[in-house]
Write a protein that binds this DNA or RNA. Structure first.
Lengths: 238, 238
DNA sequence: TCAAAAGTGTTGGGGGTACACCCATGC
DNA sequence: GCATGGGTGTACCCCCAACACTTTTGA
């Protein structure tokens, strides 16, 4: 009652801990997946959860998430790590209050340092097959999927997810998985071509890329158009 | 390096404090405003900032924000208090780390308990005239305005902001202020009428409501259509 | 030979956008 | 009478949505 107006004078309660979890969306050419960790030691052996860490009291929120991204993937991805929001309701740690500042990122699954992390139980799981996770991490995943859906609608997203050279089948497949609906092939192509986002590489896939049909046309993104549309946004209405 | 995969075993650092600030958008019939507090005592005398409070270690994030809303307005508004995100970069408290979980809310300015709060320096300021604020509160306001813009685009928002009976001029004015662009009067009306959101009250304003032109038609919202569109969303494309 | 994906055009309808004038009110 | 806002209809054009068949490849 009236507490808040004393804000600058009032004393904060320095007893909470901060953690950050990351929903890493990865595309392998066919499926949209997220990265999960599995605890391999007691007392939480077998528990699945999002890649997470506790923050030191002096760590920046976003920088900490980007550092975690770099640990996992070995490179920086300045644009595609974003905060989702704070989750503080469900997780109760016996030692006290923990608030989780969740983030998400988009990658191509090939970029994951599999060999370095797999013995820690890190692995990809298709977004439609995410099992029960520890803490409130299922809520975080759900929230991230909604955010991704909205993002796909307003900005191009393929650049970080697809291989450098991709087919229209892969692109449509990615959009359908992210937006959880199907599109008419002809209308999808028409819209993409009109957007000037795609560069026709004038060669055909040899079928070696996962999810690529041999003989289908290869494309890459027009960096300039992609940047502009990332900044200005657009409407991908279907 | 590899910290995050020990998450369940690792020890949290219980040294951070949590605060919550609220961007309260209010409409008075003409202007879209936000509520600011002014510190009236040293050592921060004169500093302007968002209504804020520190959280106790056992308080829920959203409930705490809703409680603050109730303190300010004297009623509960379950649907229109939402979390924005966590802000942790700028504010440095001498006592340690503080992370601010910001929220926003929509109200009609008439609902504000002015008499109870004005001697604490609480007052409305038009969104276009927000001065420099303490801490990183300007960042929070900017973020909230972007969120409001997106929300107006996808869901009806007038219900919480407008008086029970309002004119189309007021409604259009509100949408223009929130979305920071102007609309063609005839097209705006056509779109709203088509949406079935409006109920023609079949009476005209006597000009006593602030921002109401005498003689213009009064409307209210169709509760049912409003609820459905709040749940399902739509596209307000202009 | 069979299944799966690639590739390709047209049509109709709905809706976004642009645009101008008269009336009512208050000062 | 002058300024401000209220109220009203039409025409164009773009783009979304629906729709089917042939070809290539691999199993």
């Amino acid at each position: 009652m009236g507490d808040m107006i004393h804000f600058p004078q009032e004393e904060p309660d320095f007893q909470a801990a901060l953690s950050t979890s990351m929903v890493v969306f990865g595309f392998d050419g066919v499926d949209l997946k997220i990265l999960l960790a599995k605890s391999t030691r007691p007392p939480f052996e077998g528990a699945l959860f999002l890649p997470s860490r506790y923050l030191k009291a002096n760590e920046e929120l976003l920088l900490s998430a980007k550092k975690m991204f770099n640990d996992l993937f070995g490179y920086d991805n300045p644009s595609m790590v974003e905060q989702l929001r704070a989750f503080g309701q469900v997780f109760r740690h016996p030692g006290g209050r923990v608030v989780n500042i969740a983030h998400y990122a988009l990658v191509n699954t090939d970029d994951f340092r599999t060999e370095e992390w797999e013995h820690h139980g890190m692995h990809w799981v298709p977004v439609n097959e995410v099992p029960d996770l520890a803490f409130d991490h299922n809520d975080i995943v759900d929230y991230a999927r909604e955010r991704l859906k909205r993002r796909v609608r307003r900005r191009p997203v393929g650049f970080d997810l697809l291989p450098k050279e991709f087919t229209l089948g892969q692109l449509q497949n990615l959009y359908e998985k992210a937006m959880r609906k199907t599109f008419d092939k002809r209308n999808f192509r028409k819209k993409l071509f009109k957007s000037k986002l795609l560069v026709d590489l004038e060669k055909k896939s040899d079928g070696s890329g996962y999810g690529q049909h041999k003989g289908s046309q290869l494309f890459s993104f027009n960096d300039e158009a992609y940047s502009i549309m990332t900044l200005k946004g657009y409407d991908f209405v279907f």
